[in-house]
C-alpha cells in the first residue's frame, strides 16, 4: 500500500507546455501540458498509440517536439546543443528493450558514460559501478556480457547504467513489458527502492500494483492527450472520464 512516510515533494523540475509531435500524418502528441516536481513519481499509462512513450521520449529529446515548450531543471529544451547536453546529463532513461551494449562487459556498460562524458578515472568509475551493481543486486555478474544475463538482470543492469550518470530524473519506458512474468518482480523491486530513495521518476507502465504502491500521481493518455490526471486513489476509486473507466476495466 501507499508508503506512509510521506516524502517531501520538491519544486517544479519538468514543465511542458502544449507540446505536439507528428510522425508524418499521424499526430502522436496533440498538446501536452504537464508539470513534474522533484522527488515525485509519476506513472503514465494509456492504450497503445496514445502517445505516452512519445511523451517521455520528448523529455530527453530522443524525439524532438514540433511545437510547445519543454523546460527541465530551468533549461529549455531546443536546438541548442549546450541545453540538450545539460538536460541529458540530468536525465537517465530505461528502455523496454534494455538497449544494453552487447559488445561490452556488464561493468563496462556502466562505466563507459562516466568515463567518457564526465572524464572519470577508470578505478573511480569501477567503484561506482560495483556499488550500483550491488544496489540492483547483481554484483557477481560484473565480468559477464549482457547476453549471459537473464532478462530481469539485464533490465536491472540498464537501470544501474542510467544511475551511474547520477541523474536527477529517471524515465522508464515500459521497463517490464519485454520480461517474463517471473522476472518482472525483481525489476519492480529495484524501481520501488529507487522511488523510496527520493528519485524523480516518470514511468510508462501497466503494472498497476506497482503503480498504486509507489506513484504520487497518474497521467492517463489517450489519442495524444492527457485525458485524466490524479492520485492513485482517485483513479482506483472514482475515475471521472468514461475512457479512463473503460481502459482501467480492461487492464485490471
Amino acid at each position: 500500500m501507499k508508503n506512509t512516510s510521506k516524502k517531501e515533494i520538491g519544486k517544479e523540475i519538468i514543465s511542458t507546455t502544449d507540446i505536439t509531435k507528428s510522425f508524418g500524418k499521424f499526430q502522436a502528441l496533440k498538446g501536452i501540458t504537464s508539470k513534474v516536481f522533484e522527488k515525485e513519481v509519476v506513472v503514465v499509462f494509456g492504450p497503445s498509440g496514445s502517445g505516452k512513450s512519445t511523451y517521455i521520449r520528448t523529455l530527453n529529446r530522443l524525439e524532438p517536439h514540433d511545437s510547445g515548450q519543454i523546460i527541465i531543471d530551468g533549461v529549455e529544451l531546443n536546438d541548442d546543443v549546450k541545453n540538450l547536453q545539460h538536460v541529458r546529463s540530468n536525465i537517465g532513461m530505461v528502455f523496454q528493450q534494455f538497449n544494453l551494449f552487447p559488445h561490452l562487459s556488464v561493468l563496462r556498460n556502466i562505466t563507459l558514460a562516466p568515463q567518457k562524458v564526465k572524464g572519470m578515472k577508470r578505478s573511480e568509475a569501477d567503484d561506482i559501478a560495483m556499488s550500483l551493481l550491488k544496489r540492483v543486486g547483481i554484483p557477481e555478474q560484473a565480468d559477464k556480457f549482457p547476453s549471459q544475463l537473464s532478462g530481469g538482470q539485464q533490465q536491472r543492469l540498464a537501470i544501474a547504467r542510467a544511475l551511474a550518470m547520477q541523474p536527477k530524473i529517471m524515465l522508464f519506458d515500459e521497463p517490464t513489458s519485454a520480461l517474463d512474468p517471473e522476472m518482472i518482480k525483481e525489476v519492480l523491486e529495484v524501481m520501488t527502492e529507487l522511488a523510496e530513495s527520493g528519485m524523480t521518476m516518470i514511468c510508462v507502465t501497466h503494472e498497476m500494483g506497482f503503480a498504486r504502491e509507489v506513484a504520487d500521481r497518474f497521467l492517463f493518455f489517450d489519442e495524444g492527450l492527457i485525458v485524466e490526471e490524479g492520485t492513485p486513489d482517485h483513479f482506483f476509486n472514482n475515475p471521472k472520464e468514461d475512457r479512463t473507466k473503460l481502459f482501467l476495466s480492461q487492464i485490471l
Binding site: 541529458r88 551494449f101 542510467a162
Partner: peptide
C-alpha cells in the same frame, strides 16, 4: 545496428565521436 543502441548512447549523453568509435563501429 538497432536504433535502440543509438538511443541508449544518446540518453547517456555520449558525444558523436564516442558513440561512433565505442558503440556503433565495433558492433
Amino acid at each position: 545496428i538497432p536504433k535502440g543502441q543509438i538511443e541508449a548512447a544518446d540518453s547517456l549523453n555520449l558525444n558523436l565521436y564516442t558513440k561512433l568509435t565505442l558503440i556503433i563501429l565495433p558492433q
